[in-house]
């Protein structure tokens, strides 16, 4: 097994491939891309216990996919980049060459498919963002700050409560003829409002459609506040699977909303593109550990520094199989723990 991935990483005379990893709050995404920006293969997983476990699980699945497809063995991973809220931890673990924020990664991916895009809506598991572009340049962005209302986790929860699979959620909304009005400012209120409407006898379809509407309204007021949302509008992230939300956005914006082919992989794809450009520009040796990362053991520990009243919580990642070597450490405000030696 290890031979395969070793070959993939180093052997000469192979075609170049680039790996983008996006580890978010709920799921992790891996995209293997060739030099021309074509997606060779991808992995989408729900997060495991920690970003490290997720990264390892993703790598294992990627390795299996590569083994199953002989064509992919003709590629060698030249560079690897990470994004998402766990980008630095993941970078340390897999040996990433570059870490960028989700905003940049998403924008780059969308631009590669829709060069004239002017508005990107992204709703993921626990956060939502908006990116505004003009003339090929990112000019503004916003992220949800104090409130996770209207993100994937909430929809998940409500679907479970209504007893329907989340995959069918959108279909229910589309069938509705009279969406009910549901308080959308806060998920806690939205939920009690929903229960109230359920008990009053409204149909599931109408309640779900109303919920989609209220989520879009909430998104517009919180994240999209004060921004000019011009066409073309691209909608991505896990929630863009939901037809009900797509329709609600279209109603609100009064224009067509495009959902890209790789709607949930955009962050990882963007990272693969960024890391390719980085490789082309710098041509540097990769520090990527290879797909066998899934077999390496990593351990994170935390401790309180205690040297000053701030009492920072320090996180460190070790490799027990390599003399317990510390590969990353962060968390101190003064920076004194940032040095690894």
């Amino acid at each position: 097994m290890v031979e395969v991935s070793d070959k993939l990483k180093t052997e000469e005379g192979k075609k170049d491939a680039f790996l983008g990893i996006d580890i978010g709050s709920v799921s992790c995404k891996f995209v293997l891309m060739d030099r021309n920006g074509e997606v060779l293969t991808s992995v989408f997983l729900r997060n495991r216990g920690s970003p490290i476990d997720s990264a390892k699980a993703g790598m294992a699945e990627l390795r299996d996919k590569i083994q199953a497809e002989p064509d992919l063995l003709n590629y060698a991973i030249k560079c690897c980049g990470t994004t998402g809220s766990a980008r630095y931890l993941t970078k340390a673990v897999v040996g990433g060459d570059l870490a960028k924020t989700e905003i940049i990664a998403h924008a780059v991916a969308t631009q590669s498919m829709y060069p004239d895009v002017r508005t990107i809506l992204e709703i993921g598991g626990q956060d939502s963002k908006i990116i505004i572009l003009r003339d090929d340049i990112i000019v503004d962005f916003a992220m949800n700050s104090v409130c996770a209302a209207g993100t994937g986790s909430f929809l998940d929860h409500q679907a479970a409560r209504l007893g329907i699979p989340i995959e069918d959620f959108g279909d229910y909304a589309v069938r509705s003829e009279n969406p009910v009005s549901i308080a959308g400012r806060c998920t806690v209120f939205a939920e009690s409002d929903m229960i109230h409407k359920q008990n009053a006898g409204y149909s599931k379809e109408d309640i779900i459609a109303g919920l989609c509407d209220s989520l879009v309204r909430n998104y517009m007021n919180n994240v999209g506040k004060g921004k000019e949302l011009d066409e073309p509008v691209v909608f991505q992230g896990g929630v863009s699977y939901n037809k009900g939300i797509i329709q609600a956005f279209e109603r609100h914006l009064g224009c067509k909303v495009i959902v890209p082919k790789y709607n949930v992989l955009m962050g990882a794809l963007g990272m693969a593109i960024l890391v390719r450009d980085y490789y082309v520009e710098h041509g540097s040796e990769t520090v990527f550990r290879g797909l066998e990362v899934s077999d390496i053991e990593f351990k994170t520990t935390t401790f309180y520094c205690g040297d000053c009243p701030n009492n920072c919580e320090i996180v460190q990642v070790r490799m027990p199989e390599q003399d317990n070597k510390i590969i990353a450490r962060w968390g101190s405000r003064c920076g004194k723990w940032d040095q690894l030696t």
Binding site: K100, E102, I103, I104, F141, M143
Partner: peptide
């Protein structure tokens, strides 16, 4: 994330 995105 906000600072990095903005700078970038």
């Amino acid at each position: 994330t906000r600072i990095e995105s903005f700078v970038e």
